[in-house]
Amino acid sequence: MEAQTFTARVATPTTRLVGAMALVSMAWVVIGGLFVTPRDVDQGDAVRIMYVHVPTAWVAYLAFIVTAVASACWLLSRKHSMGFDRVAGASAEVGVVFMAMTLLSGSLWGRITWGSYWAWDPRLTTTAFLLVTYIGYLAVRGLGGSLEQRARRSAVIALLAVLEIPLVHFSVLMWRSLHQKASVLSGDGDIKMDGSMLTTLLVGVIGFTLTFTWLVLHRQRVLAMQDAMQMTQLDAALRERANESENKSVIESSRLK
């Protein structure tokens, strides 16, 4: 039997460009965040955590939105293209990592500024629930079964999460509130932040978004290869079984003779 080979290359000129841009902007954030920007009047050096915290939070939420949209596309599209499912899965994986980073950097900042690692405020609590929910989502993806089964199950779970999150957020909001009010998007358009700090923060958001895009593009290509491999292995097993039964029937018929 001929062994089928896969080209193990997932990079294309576009992903290379995205990757290079991500690297450059991340370098900018590191230099800007650690050396160029000034200390905060109240928070001191702790403010530098913001250059990681805010962009990772943004990317995590973006990732979960991408997962929800891709899942809805899979369910609604007539062809049920597996591409949607893989993008949903890849995006959720990256989202979970970034959400964990958000919680980690946030609790370090909280320890320095509030004096405690954790506070039971709506935004923190909802974020923690989001993390657990998507860890569950990834577990559902790993349940096994056919690709179609995986796609259908996880798409439903992703959409149920969209129902769950506002309910959790609202109920915790009713429960109590204490989080640092958003300072850039405060609504009145008056941004109270040093120019270099704001630039670094924005570059951070762009850099982390590019990193997210790069990771998801690569991850969904790797997932496509894994799916293809699973299918070939299945085909091979089926062929083997078919050969087996053919051989057996030849032997049996020769016995009968």
Partner: peptide
């Protein structure tokens, strides 16, 4: 898997 999936949802 049931508790992991269900408990966050029933938090409200």
């Amino acid at each position: 898997l049931l508790p992991l999936l269900m408990l966050p949802v029933v938090a409200p």
